[in-house]
Design a protein around this nucleic acid. Sequence first.
DNA 1: TCTGGGGTCCTAGGACCC
DNA 2: TCTGGGGTCCTAGGACCC
Length: 426
Amino acid sequence: MVGRQAIALVDVNNFYVSCERVFDPRLEGRPVVVLSNNDGCVVARSAEAKALGIATGAPWFQIQAQAKAWGLVARSSNYELYGDMSARVMEVVGRFGTWQEVYSIDESFVGLLGDPAQLETCGREIRAAVMRHVGLPVCVGIAQTKTLAKFANRIAKQNPALEGVCSLDSMPAGHVQAIQERVPASGLWGVGERTAKRLKMLEIQTIADLKAADPALIRKKFSVVLQRTVMELNGTECIPHTEERVDKQQIMFSRSFSTPVTTIEGMEQVMAVYAQRGAARLNDSGLRASIMTVTAGTSRFAAGEGSFPAATIRFATPTQDPIVLTRAAVAAIGQSAVPGASYLRAGVMFSGLEPLSGPEMLDVFAKPGGQPCVGGVLGDVRTKFGSQAIGLGFGGLAEPPSWSMKRELSSPKYTTEWSDLPVVRA
DNA sequence: TCTGGGGTCCTAGGACCC
DNA sequence: TCTGGGGTCCTAGGACCC
C-alpha cells in the first residue's frame, strides 16, 4: 500500500512540569505542580502529583500545608521558558509531517503518509527525536481524523504498555470498539460537561453511543460542531487543518492582582500598565486596533453583587500607539470603576484588528525599513534591555507596584535570558 | 487572606436594506 | 389593519479548548 494519509496528534506529557524537570533533574520521580499566575491554583501536575489526588485548578493555599509531608514541589509558571521549549518541540515534530498545525503550546497535528506499520514507526521516531533534541517526553496518537487522533493520543497516555504511541489502525477493531463503549462521551475532544449532560438525556452516554448516533439528529438537537464530531468518529474528516495561523481576531492582556485595588487612582495606575502591555502585544503581532475594551472585576468568590465595569472605546483611526491607548484606557476605567469596590483583576482587549501598513505616520522615531511608531521603539528597547527597561507613566516604574503579580516559586528563564543560562560543571 | 489567562467557533437576534 | 421575502452586518452570549 502506498501513501495512506493519516493525522498524528503529538503532545508533551505534563508539559510545564516536564519543562521544569529538563533543567532540574532532582524533580524527576517526585510529585511536582506548576501554579497559575499569582501562585493561585494548580495548572499542571506530574504523574506523582496526580496520584496524590491533587486536582487541576486546586487552590495552592489549600494544599500548601500538606506539601512538605508529601514531598510536593511547587513552581510558579515560567511562560518564557515554556514558550521557548514549545518552539523547539514544534520545530522537531514539524520535520516529520507533510503539514503541521500548532494547536496549543504543547500540541500539534501533523500529516503523515504510510501504511499502518509505517505510521506507527513514524510515531516512535517522532517521540525519540523530541526526547533526543529537546529532552521532553511526548505521546503520539495517529488516526484518520483529528477527533480520532485526539482519542488515540488519550489511549497512548493511559496505556504505558503502548510506550507513548497509539496508531488506531494498528489496533484490533474489537479492542478500539471496547474502549469506545467504556469511555464516556465527555472524554472526547469537543464534548464538554454541558453537552455531555444533554446527551445523557438522549441515552447517549459513551463514545460508542455518540459514534452510532444520527448526525442529522445531532445537528438538529445540538449544533454543527457536535455533528462534525460524530462524523469524525466515523472516519470522515470534517475539521479542516489550517497550517497558517488565521489572522488574530482579538488580543488581550488580563491579569489578577496579588492584593486588591480599591481606589480610582489605583485602577488608573493598573490600566496605565495593562494598556501598555496590551499595546506591546499589538506591536509584536504587527497589528493595530480600532476597538479597545477595558474591564475590571471584584472577586467572583466574595459575597454580594460585586462590580464588573467594562467600557468600549472606538478609534476613528485604528491605532497601536501606546500613548493614545494608555490615555484612553485610563480615562475609561476612571469613569466606569466604582470607588471603594475591591478590585482583583483587570484587562484590556483589542479587536477590529488590521495589519500595520505603510509609513503614513511621520514620526521622529521612524527606523529605516521598519514601522515608524512609538510602540516599535519601546519594543526594541525592551528586547535589548529587558522588559522593565522602559514605559510610560506608571508603566515605567522599575519596582513593580504592590498589586503586581506574585511569582515566588519561579524557575530561571534558562533559555531566554543570558543571565539565567544554566551552569554545568564537569 | 488565598480560586488562571488566553483564545476559538457558532448561534440567535436586532438593525437595516431592497 | 394587516402585512413580504430575502439578505447583510454586527453583537452578545454560550460552549469548548488548553
